[in-house]
């Protein structure tokens, strides 16, 4: 019994450690974003203010809302297309018979491990020729492609759990492949679709290098680049505004993680481990 108590205390301490390790940077961000001065340690009392948020929302030259809008649109469209395309592919891989099936799957999966830097030279030239630099397309196309491997892998693992007899009987009943896919398989893989969609969305929302190279200004620039480039007027960084902007742009991520924690964890482990 003594040991059990000790373990309980140990786990309590470990939990506190884990929580504070994960949350302190976020709390610090919130505190600074709501403070009048960001030199909070030398002050006797901390003054609460909304002015940082008002400033980044009101000042059109900062383009904070443009960046957030760009990010949401680009990531949203990329996620939808990535899941759609990957679902079609995963269905073929798990249900149809064709040569080099496993090699094709491995090949596509391996591609997600390539370093992004090894494609930007070509991508930049391609987008320049297509006149896509600083447009949504310039980011959406690579984002769909780079999130296909994880979406495909998640969908393959979901499809392979559904018994094959199910769609076979539909085919016997006179459904076409496409009808069988749409009416029987798709509804059963809803959790997979959600997981794949969320992970693709987060991938695109977080991507930095492509956005850095393929966009120029607020018309297509996304949040990570916008925040990385946020500069003060006179050398000194306006930390209050930066943290307010950061807090605001993290809102979609925080909402998604809170609502879909289970789907995200499931997607991640399906993407990594096959049980």
């Amino acid at each position: 019994m003594k040991e059990e108590k000790l373990i309980k205390i140990l786990f309590f301490i470990a939990t506190l450690f884990v929580l504070s390790f994960c949350l302190i940077p976020f709390l610090y961000m919130l505190i600074i974003s709501f403070c009048k001065s960001w030199d909070i340690f030398s002050l006797k009392e901390i003054e609460f203010t909304f002015s940082n948020y008002i400033k980044i929302l009101k000042d059109p030259s900062l383009h904070c809302l443009d960046y957030i809008k760009n990010s949401l649109i680009i990531s949203g469209i990329s996620a939808i297309f990535s899941v759609f395309v990957a679902t079609l592919g995963a269905y073929a891989i798990s249900r149809l018979d064709f040569p080099f099936k496993f090699s094709i799957l491995l090949f596509i999966l391996a591609s997600s491990m390539f370093p992004q830097i090894s494609v930007i030279g070509f991508l930049f030239k391609l987008m320049k020729i297509l006149n896509f630099i600083n447009t949504y397309q310039a980011l959406i196309l690579p984002y769909i492609s780079w999130s296909i491997p994880i979406s495909l892998w998640i969908m393959v693992s979901y499809f392979s759990k559904i018994p094959k007899d199910l769609d076979k009987s539909a085919l016997v009943d006179g459904c076409s492949w496409f009808q069988a896919f749409l009416k029987i398989i798709l509804p059963l893989t809803k959790p997979g679709l959600v997981s794949a969609g969320l992970l693709s969305f987060l991938f695109s929302f977080n991507e930095f290098l492509f956005a850095l190279i393929l966009t120029i200004d607020y018309r297509a620039r996304t949040v990570p680049v916008g925040i990385a480039m946020f500069q003060g007027l006179h050398g000194e960084l306006p930390w209050g505004s930066i943290m307010a902007f950061t807090a605001l742009s993290l809102l979609p991520v925080i909402i998604i993680v809170t609502l879909f924690q289970k789907h995200i964890m499931q997607g991640l482990t399906r993407g990594a481990i096959k049980e």
Binding site: V18, M29, I264
Partner: peptide, 16 residues
């Protein structure tokens, strides 16, 4: 809470 640091953009965590 544990998922949050992983879910946010690396560029933003760098700023934090």
């Amino acid at each position: 809470c544990v998922l949050l640091p992983w879910a946010i953009p690396a560029a933003i965590s760098a700023r934090l």
